[in-house]
């Protein structure tokens, strides 16, 4: 009897996950399999590697995407690191308010945040009309690579600050005091103690900024004005744009996934333990 109820119980416990397991197969696994299938077939469903080969035609767009996303990620890291350090060292009551201030812009829809920069950077925008007051000719800022990088930094900066802040919070104060007692000054403590301990935060921050930055099509479209196509734009055009070609679009998506996978594997190498920081 006892044995019986036990098996009954574990069967129920297994079944409880069944609906979601089916869901995952239908809406996660099968769609990704379809991306792979479309990437490796022609429009008539015949096997081919042409689509993947065709992706090479767009190598310049891939290079640009990786380059701009990398610059944005580095800038985010440089801005966020001191910010997270300062945040983690303030009093507990101030911390919750400051943290809220960091997260608040994230909850504004990112289309609106990006639109705001269109208003600021435009040829008749805020900055240029301000410069105009002093008789300075308007500078072209919108529709440049700089504007795209700025948009990425602005949109994804909180994603860098938060994981960094989380690991820095966990650093035991007594470790820092010990470093101080042993003769480290502020800068030396930062480089010798805080930096190595915050590597998990750095790696997850890098992934959390780089992945959305490399695959965006909104920021490049709104702030790059169509002149700075990124991988995301390329994919979007094959599915919803003028150059409808889901087979090529799938091939590009597949390559993008591989790039993201490589980045994540590299980042995981730097993580010492299984001390992952997830939001």
């Amino acid at each position: 009897m006892n044995e019986n109820t036990h098996t009954h119980r574990s069967l129920l416990q297994k079944l409880i996950a069944a609906p979601y397991i089916v869901w995952m197969i239908v809406f996660i696994i099968v769609p990704l399999a379809m991306v792979a299938y479309f990437a490796m077939t022609t429009a008539d469903g015949v096997f081919t590697l042409e689509n993947i080969k065709d992706v090479w035609q767009y190598a310049n767009i891939f290079v640009r995407s990786i380059w701009l996303a990398a610059i944005a990620t580095v800038i985010c890291l440089v801005i966020a690191y001191p910010a997270a350090y300062i945040l983690s060292r303030t009093s507990a009551s101030a911390q919750s308010t400051l943290l809220m201030l960091v997260m608040l812009p994230m909850w504004m829809n990112f289309l609106l945040r990006t639109y705001a920069w269109m208003t600021i950077l435009g040829n008749n925008g805020l900055i240029n009309s301000f410069l105009g007051l002093f008789g300075i000719d308007s500078i072209k800022m919108l529709n440049t690579q700089g504007a795209v990088v700025l948009g990425m930094v602005y949109n994804y900066l909180p994603y860098m600050i938060l994981p960094l802040y989380t690991v820095m919070m966990k650093i035991d104060k007594s470790v820092l005091e010990a470093a101080h007692d042993l003769g480290c000054n502020g800068a030396k403590t930062l480089f010798k103690v805080v930096m190595p301990l915050s590597i998990p935060g750095i790696t997850s921050g890098i992934t959390m900024v780089f992945v959305p930055a490399i695959s965006t099509f909104i920021i490049s479209r709104m702030l790059g004005g169509g002149s700075q196509l990124l991988i995301g734009d390329l994919i979007e055009m094959q599915f919803l744009g003028n150059s409808y070609n889901p087979n090529l679009g799938s091939a590009i998506s597949l390559v993008l996934m591989v790039i993201v996978l490589i980045i994540m594997t590299v980042m995981n190498q730097f993580d010492a333990g299984d001390d992952k920081v997830l939001m």
Binding site: M34, I214, I235, M257
Partner: peptide, 15 residues
């Protein structure tokens, strides 16, 4: 969560 949003989007669109 890990996949770029656009890939999730187009994969579901294909389905």
């Amino acid at each position: 969560i890990i996949n770029p949003e656009i890939v999730t989007g187009v994969s579901l669109m294909l389905l």
